[in-house]
């Protein structure tokens, strides 16, 4: 009967008087353990025994007796030519292919390029795994990083910054960004072209897929802002757009707001905002709502970022009041 302790094989030969002749190390594991790097690490006494002991018998015999109990105290083993006997892996259960949930777990770590260029074409099953909503969502949760755009220069392409193994990696996407990148949400961008009467696009800079949104109801050029939001309940993306119309009514600019569900709506839906009022300081926004029957103003939830002011200023973030209201509206709708 063979015994192993802590991943180390030795075999008892009672009939041969329990004598240690030697040990056969376990190449894969041990070579890694006993690499110079591992040995150089400051380990606790017991760990040192473990790491070093994999090659040095004197250490190991101490360790094994502590580990294995009285059966093994001063137990003497002999070389067991493990790999000579068992180098062929014929006894293993043959894995035709890994179960679906394992494939799922592995593919989660694969970059999007490989998923789209390679993994998708492996077989139909993989294709269905990759295209499942669950996979897309979980893969998104796995990725971490920020798309950073230099403010004030909309024409400069955003760069992607991520952390990996304690290092910051900056990668430039080969995607050709459109004129203005408004916002991003779950890896999707909301972009706008200045040409052709300003069309909004929802695009994926990694897969280079893009989707043109229906044209806006009115031709507007002044102070337009757009935001993209994800509605987890309906699994839909919504775009909100505010604008100031050119047609002035009695000198007051006509401020409007329109909303669109991506891929569903064919027309923008105008949102009544006359009953809403925003008062804002630099990092705090108050939203007031007027009851139409009583004309009474009621304060809605605040958007208060005062506490995080330092962080925001440090990151050179800035936001316009209208943009934050948009975010809020997109949650409401």
């Amino acid at each position: 009967m063979g015994y192993w302790a802590c991943g180390l094989p030795w075999e008892r030969y009672p009939e041969e008087g329990n004598s240690i002749v030697g040990l056969r190390s376990f190449d894969d594991v041990i070579d890694r353990f006993t690499s110079d790097k591992a040995r150089g690490l400051s380990l606790s006494p017991s760990a040192r025994v473990f790491v070093v002991g994999l090659r040095r018998l004197s250490y190991l015999s101490n360790y094994s007796s502590a580990m294995a109990g009285d059966d093994c105290v001063s137990l003497k083993c002999r070389v067991r030519p493990y790999y000579l006997r068992r180098c062929k892996r014929v006894t293993l259960t043959n894995i035709e292919s890994l179960p679906d949930d394992m494939v799922f777990k592995i593919l989660l770590h694969l970059p999007v390029e490989d998923i789209y260029n390679v993994a998708k074409f492996v077989c139909r099953k993989w294709y269905h795994i990759i295209n499942s909503h669950n996979f897309i969502y979980t893969h998104l949760q796995h990725s971490s990083g920020l798309l950073i755009q230099h403010l004030g220069a909309f024409s400069s392409s955003p760069i992607f910054v991520s952390m990996s193994r304690g290092q910051i990696e900056i990668s430039k996407l080969s995607y050709k960004f459109r004129d203005i990148v408004w916002t991003s949400c779950n890896g999707l961008l909301l972009e706008r072209t200045l040409k052709y009467g300003s069309i909004l696009y929802v695009s994926n800079p990694v897969t280079k897929q893009h989707f043109a949104l229906p044209p806006l109801n009115r031709r507007v050029f002044l102070n337009t802002y757009s935001g993209l939001g994800y509605d987890a309940a309906s699994r839909e993306y919504k775009v909100v757009h505010t604008y100031v119309c050119n047609d002035y009514n009695d000198g007051d600019p006509n401020i409007g707001c329109a909303i669109l569900t991506v891929g569903v709506d064919e027309y923008w839906r105008n949102v009544q905002t006359e009953h809403l009022c925003v008062s804002a300081s630099e990092f705090c926004w108050e939203v007031w709502e007027m009851k139409p029957d009583t004309a009474e103003w009621i304060k809605l939830l605040n958007i208060d970022l005062e506490a995080r002011k330092c962080t925001l200023e440090h990151l050179f973030c800035f936001a316009l009041p209208t943009m934050f209201v948009l975010e809020k509206l997109s949650h409401l709708s």
Partner: peptide
């Protein structure tokens, strides 16, 4: 799983 994905990177179908 992560290691396997690392190996799979840039490999042919």
């Amino acid at each position: 799983a992560k290691k396997m994905a690392d190996i799979m990177k840039n490999k042919l179908v």
